[in-house]
């Protein structure tokens, strides 16, 4: 029995409509905003399909960071695309129709949506669902798999973020001092007090997400993004100069690198204690306890790197002068 909810059908149709609007739009600001909405609706769909952690992350990343960075890029460059290049192009259209047709051909032997007998549900997943509670000892299976069974992937993911920020440091940091941006809001007393009151709350929420990832959706990545959001808010109200006094380039670099090193060190320590790389079971006398400790530490490493990377990205894009 195929169980395809109406909400699923409607949301997917929405996504298609938005994508086609993006194709047609000449105004890039509007296109970027639609991309943000696209991400939000995707996040809703992920919720519908039970992927709560993914929904959380997609909302934070797609509707949050990506949109902010794209808008700042447009502010630094130009906001309209040249209509000369906005025609319907026949050759690319034929190419994508051909590829699309091939892909549709490939779907016919796929297991049906929601089928509990599909190979992915019967082969690897049962162990995660039935035994991760005993082997790793935390309720959120996604966190168990991400932090322990496939922790090496997550280490790679942290390294990807680290790599990207090295690139942005290389590309955008300008030895010449930039014009200070974002000073305008400073005089508004309500905003200032409001922000001062709000920032600690956001940070506490970030910590909650950081350490509650074992039990509910959340974890280092989401926490890092939320923590960075607090700093971004602070910067918008109090100006870049004040924010940069706290988060100097040197300190940010230290944190960015430190998080990756913390992650790696957990793995190295487990090797020194006789386990394989990232085998947390050896970290404490009781293997499950060790798993807890290991996941806590590596999530902290992820959180530190991600928060520092997001703040660095924001500073680098904001400090950049308009050409």
């Amino acid at each position: 029995m195929i169980n395809l909810g109406l909400i699923d059908v409607v949301l997917l149709a929405f996504l298609v409509a938005i994508t086609w609007a993006i194709i047609q739009l000449r105004d890039l600001f509007a296109a970027v905003m639609l991309t943000g909405i696209f991400s939000l609706i995707s996040a809703c769909l992920f919720m519908v399909m039970d992927a709560v952690d993914v929904a959380f992350t997609e909302a934070a990343v797609g509707a949050g960071i990506s949109t902010v960075l794209m808008l700042r890029t447009l502010a630094l460059t130009s906001g309209r695309s040249n209509p000369r290049f906005n025609r319907l192009e026949l050759a690319p259209l034929l190419v994508v129709i051909a590829i699309g047709a091939a892909l549709v051909y490939g779907t016919f032997d796929m297991p049906r949506y929601g089928d509990p007998q599909a190979p992915i549900h019967t082969y690897m997943a049962p162990r995660f669902i039935e035994q991760s509670g005993d082997e790793v000892g935390i309720p959120n299976i996604v966190t168990s798999v991400l932090g322990s069974y496939r922790s090496y992937d997550t280490f790679g993911e942290t390294t990807v973020v680290f790599t990207a920020v090295i690139g942005v440091f290389l590309l955008l940091s300008d030895p010449r001092r930039g014009r200070r941006a974002g000073d305008a809001l400073r005089d508004d007393i309500i905003l200032r007090i409001g922000t001062k009151a709000l920032v600690p709350f956001i940070m506490v929420f970030a910590l909650y997400v950081q350490f509650h990832g074992d039990y509910g959706p959340g974890g280092g990545f989401q926490a890092g993004v939320i923590f960075a959001a607090a700093i971004v808010l602070y910067t918008l109200v109090f100006g870049l100069a004040r924010a940069e006094k706290i988060f100097r380039r040197r300190r940010l670099e230290l944190l960015v690198a430190g998080g990756v090193l913390l992650y790696g060190t957990v793995g190295v320590v487990s090797m020194a204690l006789g386990g394989n790389f990232l085998d947390y079971s050896v970290l404490a006398h009781d293997p499950v306890h060790g798993q807890h400790l290991g996941i806590l530490l590596i999530e902290l490493g992820v959180g530190i790197t991600v928060a520092a990377v997001m703040v660095s990205l924001f500073f680098l894009f904001v400090r950049r002068r308009q050409v």
Binding site: Y123, M124, R127, F128, S148, Y149, R150, S151, Y152, G275, N276, F277, L278, D279, Y280, S281
Partner: peptide, 9 residues
């Protein structure tokens, strides 16, 4: 890696 046997690890 992580001491988990493939294909789980």
């Amino acid at each position: 890696l992580g001491g988990w046997p493939p294909p789980w690890g």
